[in-house]
Amino acid sequence: MRAGLVLSEVGQGLRRNISMVVSIILVTFISLTFVGAAILLQFQINQMKGYWYDRAQVAVYLCTAYTEGGNCNETEATSQQKADVEQALKTAPLSPLIKHYEFEDHAQAFKHYQEQFGKDDSAGFVTPDFLPETFWVNLKNPDQSDVVIERLSNQPGVDDVVDQRKYLQPIFNVLNVASLTAIGIAALMLIAAVLLIATTIRLSAFSRRREVGIMRLVGASNRFIQTPFILEGVVAALIGSVLASGAIIALVHFFVQGYLNASPSGIPFVSMRDALVVVPIVIVGGAVLSAISGAVAIRRYLKV
């Protein structure tokens, strides 16, 4: 009985304020899409960090006959020097930090080079002895690369020691800025959405002030009076958040999986599973936000 009455009041209110309701739906739709996109970007960043930091290694480049810098002086690293480097990696100060390391000789380096750049024109100029032999060192804790760099930089036969994470940092910075921008836009739009919901509910309460007045007079409880108004905002916001969820799923399905994943890049992208984690966040967030703003907006009408 009461539920039916409340729902019919909600339906009436939605129909009466149709233009405001449509604007609530659109604003929550857009703002929550941005929220979802920001969350997905953060997932993407974490996923890439995990992926790359797992692979990112400290490269100990050894001298070639063509290297001028470092400790090289255009002399190929001798096998004694290589053994010394390897010895350093195996023993005390460094070995506890290292998960594993591997040695890449000229032939392997050339093979990787060809794999990476394929039949590019420049491939013809590069010969195996042009590419340095390298110790690829994988650390237990990637943050401790400084120790390796310090220990090996001055070792004879070593050209340079590079922490490859530094190449990734700019990418993460860009992604972080993008996700912060999305959050910023989302926050602004959410403020607009909250104010719009509050205004709509006040309008709705104003257009029904006779009913509200009589309800208060005959002793309807505050909860009974306010529920239809709050539900009105929640229903509109829920429609918006369902649309936003659809947009997020579509984004992942068509853009990430259909476009980005179509060309093999070796970069792990967010999957549909991540999108399905975002959907409930967006829907519950939209409902809770609208319920709170509605409850605050209607409170003034319920002072007894």
Binding site: M1, R2, E211, V218
Partner: peptide, 8 residues
């Protein structure tokens, strides 16, 4: 009836 409906 309204006054009775709204008090349940």
């Amino acid at each position: 009836a309204f006054s009775l409906q709204v008090i349940g």
